[in-house]
Nucleic acid binder design. Structure first.
Lengths: 340, 340
DNA sequence: GTGAAAGCGCTAACAC
DNA sequence: GTGTTAGCGCTTTCAC
């Protein structure tokens, strides 16, 4: 493989024009069968493969979708992300499209990563995940002609297609369930406030408390950064209170698992001395018998790709806004508090 | 943003030629300062952004690296993959390169995904992960001019740059450690035989047994598919033996965690009744006090990108073959067997 | 300093 | 049926 074969090479070799070669290869039926055969044979012979970049330039279409992962660094190992990427990738493969991936932490440079993909003409559409308050990515994209879909809602006054979990409802049910078991001091480890879902999840928790006539004591609410480490710190804080909670709900499983770890370290029996629940149902959660709200991340990835594909193709969307109901998975980590 | 600005637009607007505009924007110093200023100003004004596809076609360089994930489906949630992707992505970002990602299960179509990227001219280089025996991806790529780096070694008689874990040594040490604790019946849950590392890991285990004068009874060796599910099945098989092992080593953490889960279900105390160890040190492993061999997946991703970058740039590589030593992390899941 | 011209590899409108 | 021409947006000689 010294020099890659192009249409030109084949044209020279067969004596036909580049155009004819192009059409023969594209399968147009205005090419003489004999000609086609010759062309196909030499293409095969030369190991011809079309230059996709050239085609993209001409067709003004890249068959590529962009995704910029909104965080980075070694601690970036949330199983949540591999599941969503797998879902996105598998669905795109169905449509012969690829995924152009960048990592860029939220901050001043993030938008230029978006510009690069959008204005550089590298993608036909984008997927945005983990929405934030006043999300400038959405503000930017909506000013663009480019199709995009979002995992998560926004507080901006902009309409765009999205998929989201109704985590408010999820946490409402979860909290209600814990209350029904007799818990009254329920700690809450929130997500960082800048994330859209942080408020939803907290609202569900608060709503359930209020409905039960309980005061939502903010001492029992701490914020974690969704990582193991963050959950660890938050859990320590909650368990060190003079009157510690008998149950802790974390905004995601990673922090819930960290909570379990801290509790065990302190000799607390999960389920007996402390109930713990999370959100996501990531793979290891079942091993821990962690009560959680299941989010079908892989399927969400597929669905996101599919929506975007339709948008790119110009197919009218059935639903621009999809709100999924998380499923409450009750396991052994939540039981009635001691003495009840 | 109706129609994107191009060099042509700016040329028309300023009265200069496309060439001059191009040079001014590229920062060449053979452009009059006054001219440059005008051009820069109108470019800014029009919100000009270069079309990357066009540039790629002209420069014959894409600033993109390809990665094809060798599996797919919903069960694809190995934290291992998100860590490596994050590492690859972060390092590429340093060099202003992007990652083109596809998912394609091993099989007849896999190679066409590679052809698409390589012969379609979509990438400047490729990263191959999770090598297999007689790996046709490597055979294919080596016949190509395109730079590529590999995570894992190969049994093919081909030289290529790679990074790998010396998992044979790792498992040798791990097994020796278990033997030193007094275990004599040590089960082994292997990776699928077609994976290169399966043999290395098994060899380390076997070597340690033989060195201790023990017969490597193949009844104690079962194969799992590296998933939770696979580990579950394998663990059940081992624990149902008439004379079950007192310790089980799994080829990866996911299967080790599954083993813990099965053992717990059967009322076995981990560490007391059954010792368990794995490989990877994925995030949840520490919570389970799982003894394991740590593999710095994120850093490996970074290193892979970096090697590939150097290859693409034509920088001579210091080491074409990097063999990392996995670190043995001893935790509570491995203790001397009962009665010792 | 600046511009004209060629070309990266491909597709598509239009003529013959 | 097939070829000519033009053009996607950019970079890069090479004149002037």
């Amino acid at each position: 493989m010294t020099q890659r074969a192009t249409l030109k090479t084949i044209a020279a070799q067969t004596g036909f024009s580049i155009t004819t070669v192009s059409r023969a290869l594209a399968g147009y039926n205005d090419v003489a069968p004999s000609t086609r055969q010759i062309i196909l044979a030499t293409a095969e012979d030369l190991g011809y493969y079309p230059n996709l970049t050239a085609r993209q330039l001409q067709k003004q279409r890249t068959d590529t979708v962009g995704l910029i992962l909104p965080t980075h660094g070694p601690r970036y190992s949330d199983p949540y992300f591999s599941a969503i990427i797998a879902g996105i990738g598998d669905e795109l493969a169905q449509h012969n499209m690829d995924l152009l991936l960048s990592t860029q932490p939220p901050g001043p440079d993030e938008l230029s990563a978006y510009r690069r993909m959008v204005e550089g003409g590298r993608v036909d559409g984008l997927i945005v995940i983990r929405t934030r308050k006043q999300d400038d990515r959405i503000a930017y994209l909506s000013k663009t002609r480019l199709p995009f879909v979002v995992f998560g809602r926004s507080d901006l006054d902009i309409d765009f297609p999205y998929i989201d979990e109704d985590s408010e409802m999820g946490f409402y049910h979860l909290t209600t369930y814990l209350l029904s078991q007799g818990h009254t001091r329920i700690g809450f480890i929130s997500a960082p406030r800048e994330l859209m879902f942080a408020d939803f999840r907290f609202a569900g928790y608060r709503h359930a408390l209020q409905e039960a006539g309980l005061f939502c004591d903010m001492q029992y609410v701490v914020i974690g950064d969704l990582t193991r480490k963050g959950g660890d710190i938050a859990a320590r804080q909650l368990l060190s209170m003079p009157s510690p909670p008998t149950a802790i709900i974390a905004a995601n499983d990673l922090m819930a698992l960290a909570t379990i770890s801290v509790a065990q370290e302190r000799g607390l029996q999960i389920g007996q001395d402390l109930s713990v629940a999370g959100f996501d149902d990531i793979p290891p959660s079942d091993i821990f018998s962690l009560t959680t709200l299941r989010q079908p991340t892989y399927d969400i990835g597929r669905k996101l790709s599919n929506l975007l594909y339709q948008l790119i193709e110009g197919t009218p969307l059935e639903d621009r806004h999809i709100l999924l109901k998380p499923e409450l998975i009750i396991r052994g980590s939540t039981r009635p508090p001691r003495g009840v």
